[in-house]
Nucleic acid binder design. Structure first.
Lengths: 198, 198
DNA sequence: ACCTGAACACCGTTCAAGT
DNA sequence: ACCTGAACACCGTTCAAGT
């Protein structure tokens, strides 16, 4: 807020004429950036999974370059026009892939949550402290096989693979799971003791 | 920092003798809290998926009650003894379910990322402003069918279901996907142009 | 009516100075 | 050697006062 204000040569108070708080500012900026992600309406002759992976990848890349926005998007769900267009595009691709409507409705949340949280996690490390992911990795490597037998048994598998390969695999896992896991029955109409309503 | 310091009747500077920064403090507190999650070694005669869902649910519940820690865990990957015990337990359950080692090695990350980010997202809303999830939901409902055809086509499916039902389904999706999506070949040894190493 | 200076109530972190 | 008061450099948000 203060940085933006001084960039605009005013006091921070002036911003509150246009925006209610930081969350709303973040949401507005993010939606503006989302205007740049290409929605895969162009590419023909590409499998629907790959087109989803591509669109989701663009979204992830935008958030990766702006980790603050990713973290913000995680707590304040975006709902700007460009975000809705992204959702619409992904829903269309899932339908194209023959995923049943009720499954893609919930599945879209999973895909976007995954992309957003990966970006919030891995987003540009400011310092050269190489991140705490590495600390976790070495903790896994050094884990005593007496106390943590399963970790020790897995060995190098746990720390293998580039972040990119893991990301791609995550998307594949979600798509496979969304296509195969059926939704619980009787959730269309919330029950009398329902949780989401009111 | 300052709040904890004044709780301890000192200046905030004193804390830096025991802890390097806020992230490290958060990690230490979280690991302490994780000491309370019951690791499913007890329950016999329950399907492995359900036992995973149960353990992951306990983890999620802890984070839900401490949203700040959830957000912190998302950017600074925990690596304390109790977190490692949780990872070890989940790996054991996946193996018990017959999931191949290389898949469960990467799958564990997906499960924990999902739980952590759900908690960061839904964690105790401080105010009574009912959260921005609701704003997104109504945005979906009001989406013009001309601009967002796929959203309009899905209709009520998009906004159906309690958060709990969606969470449970998310875990099911991940487990189904992890079991079915094979890992990309040739990732065990990073290639010469590999990304994770160095 | 529209904008904003100045203040309020906070943060995390550092470091020189104390015991 | 171990601890810490006080300061530094920031935040987001509000509101009375200005034009």
């Amino acid at each position: 807020m203060r940085r933006l204000a001084s960039e605009l040569d005013t006091g921070p108070a002036s911003l509150y004429v246009y925006v209610r708080n930081t969350a709303e500012l973040h949401a507005a900026v993010l939606d503006e950036l989302l205007g740049t992600v290409p929605l895969a309406t162009e590419s023909r002759r590409v499998a629907w999974n790959d087109r989803i992976a591509r669109v989701l990848g663009s979204y992830t890349r935008v958030l990766m370059e702006h980790p603050t926005l990713a973290r913000s998007a995680l707590v304040t769900r975006p709902s700007g026009p460009n975000y809705l267009a992204l959702v619409d595009c992904l829903l269309g691709l899932l339908r194209e892939g023959g995923v049943p409507d009720d499954r893609s409705a919930w599945g879209i949340d999973l895909l976007l949550l995954f992309a957003t949280s990966i970006a919030a996690e891995h987003g540009t490390r400011d310092q050269a402290d190489q991140g705490p992911e590495q600390a976790f990795m070495t903790a896994l490597r050094d884990a005593s096989s007496a106390r943590y037998p399963a970790i020790a048994a897995l060995g190098n598998d746990l720390v293998s693979g580039s972040p990119e390969a893991r990301y791609e695999w995550g998307v594949a896992v979600l798509l496979a799971g969304i296509a195969s896991a059926s939704r619980p029955a009787g959730e269309a109409e919330p029950s009398m003791q329902g949780g989401a309503t009111s």
